[in-house]
Design a protein around this nucleic acid. Structure first.
Lengths: 355, 355
DNA sequence: CATCTAAAGTCATACGTATTACCAAGTCAT
DNA sequence: ATGACTTGGTAATACGTATGACTTTAGATG
């Protein structure tokens, strides 16, 4: 017999019934099974190398122990790290994570919760290329959803469903929302960054903002504006750009017309574009222009000069978010968590040029 | 009744038996069910919004429709993209993907296939922090494994298991191995890169190599050496470095002592370190030193000057690999695929300085 | 007309688990 | 001594699907 052992095999080996095995291994035997019997069951399970069959358990329990992770893209070190943290915690608790890359701006019909019409999936799976995202949640049942705020509009639909909506935790979303949220305290991060530059003597600020209208970026902008407003005589100009090097470069050129001495960027990728714009304009970083970012992805260290930025605890974010989701699935109360960012001072910030 | 419909509900609605529904929806009704009946079943399923219960199907079929993805890290745009492609194809075929970040050099005891002793997972899951990777495959059953070559040593154990080893496809591994493999033709990529530089007039080459002993990097080195050997009067020096900016910088300093005019790097990240070394040495890129990379991650475009590199089709790699794995699971024959890289000429390569 | 075959379905069952209801044997209070 | 209660366990069942063994009916064949 080479097939993998079942709980019944364990029962036979331990001289008890299958129910007893199930009860003991679930840890619910207080007052139902004697200690020696429980011990015997554990030993038999160990000896046989028993692992519960998840499919059977899922069927019985009506859950899938699977979590959907909705994220704009994994081709970003930030979300990759978030995923890593989330997946680690999930795995440790017997959950799988299915990722659903959902680029911001994707049409609503492509939402992971909208099933294609008439598509009852067959068990056969002729391998081949697939175009575009596919519908995950429609047939791969899920117990919960971990979603980046960039997918916020797809979630309205989810929440409106009548058939038992899965548990939901939002990532980097507005903590004031009724939905449990785990995010980075970007407002504080921005204030720290401004304080750092103000301390160096800067008063003319430029904000290279991400052009995505989600909480995290809105908040960065507001916090930055508030912090600058508190500085006597300080000015602020702002320009939005898509999160890409090229777009940032163009937008930064516009900002530079106002001759700021410090440029704060909503993301490190934007900072890379700002570097290029500065070079185009013949400005030295940090001699003529200080540049600060947010994220601390690999890029920050690779740029020349190395980028002063705020490190966002991406892996911890994923871990905490998954922990909150599992807690929710376990019947615990929803929690909203905020993690601090860390200012990493490198070589891209310095006192402003004398005038 | 608000619970989700089962195949029995569909059967009642269509006026047939549950078995018939199952047969029809599986698409296996050739000669077993009349066309009108099949039609009725499909309509009923559509009308009720029926989705098969995966847990039940998995239990019945003894499979999990889950694939393990073993990867050194997701905090790298490259593997993030590979994952994205793989997950997309998997999802389209009803498979989930569980990722197992397995940093190169991880101790064998932490292999995803080695279960911790005595750890029969309980269904309860007190949320909380977890340290280090956890054991996925030991209890979360899987049908197949997609593994980066960097996890090669953990796989020996897998293949030696007696209890029905899962199907396996290797990523970026030696195509000569008996294991089905999907990889990028890095040898050809390297030759293309050398040809580009040789065409510009370079004869003194330096190779900034990754210090990981896996097929993909070994092959890059060999192909580079072979290509240089074919150039009359060409020389080559090599230095290995960990895949990180700092380590690459140090190693590049050593290389520069031999005054190469062109530096080829096993990865874009290494190229970033080479940039820093060049700057340290007062060399202009590309005026005094041409630098070429491999990967074409975001970084390549962000560097100044923008990096000439070979674009590896990461997403396509993941897609093809998953397709090959699904084909294998479907009883198809193992296939080994090789995808071409694309040379992307940017601003970091130019003719060598006059002497 | 009797028999055979094909077509079109249905029946029954098993996958492995978790849980509810039940039961036997002591123990204790009255 | 008898009922009530506790302790320690078992039997039975349901979750939803896929499938091999059957059944029925109609048409073809001898």
């Amino acid at each position: 017999m080479t097939r993998r052992p079942t709980s019944r095999d364990v029962a036979v080996a331990a001289g008890v019934s299958q129910s007893t095995v199930s009860i003991v291994l679930a840890g619910k035997w207080a007052g139902r099974v004697s200690a020696p019997t429980a011990q015997a069951v554990h030993e038999a399970a160990e000896r046989l190398g028993y692992r519960p069959n998840l499919a059977a358990r899922n069927l019985r329990l009506g859950q899938t122990r699977t979590v959907l992770f909705v994220v704009p893209t994994l081709t970003s070190p930030f979300f990759g790290a978030v995923y890593t943290g989330a997946a680690r915690v999930a795995a440790a608790h017997g959950f799988g994570v299915v990722v659903y890359p959902w680029p911001a701006g994707t049409a609503r019909e492509r939402s992971p919760f909208a099933a294609p019409r008439g598509a009852v999936p067959a068990p056969s799976h002729p391998a081949g290329a697939v175009e575009g995202p596919s519908w995950v949640a429609s047939w791969k049942e899920i117990d919960g959803v971990l979603a980046s705020s960039m997918a916020a509009d797809a979630l309205a639909e989810l929440l409106a469903r009548d058939d038992g909506s899965p548990a939901l935790v939002m990532l980097d979303s507005d903590p004031a929302d009724p939905v449990p949220t785990v995010n980075v305290d970007v407002a504080e991060s921005m204030r720290t960054l401004v304080a750092h530059l103000a301390g160096l003597g800067h008063r003319r600020f430029g904000h290279l903002a991400a052009d995505i209208d989600v909480w995290t970026f809105r908040t960065r902008g507001e916090a930055l504006a508030a912090a600058v407003a508190e500085l006597p005589g300080a000015t602020l100009v702002r320009q939005a750009a898509p999160i890409a090097v090229d777009g940032a470069r163009t937008a930064a050129h516009v900002l530079l017309r106002d001759a700021p001495t410090a440029l704060l960027c909503d993301a490190d990728v934007l900072a890379a574009g700002a570097y290029k714009a500065a070079r185009d304009a013949g400005l030295d970083v940090p001699g003529d222009l200080s540049i600060g970012g947010i994220d601390d992805i690999l890029l920050a260290e690779a740029l020349e000069p190395e980028l002063t930025t705020v490190r966002l605890p991406a892996e911890a974010l994923g871990e905490r978010a998954m922990a909150a989701l599992l807690e929710l699935l376990d019947g615990g109360r929803p929690q909203t968590v905020s993690l601090p960012g860390d200012l990493v001072v490198r070589a891209s910030t310095a006192p402003p040029p004398d005038r």
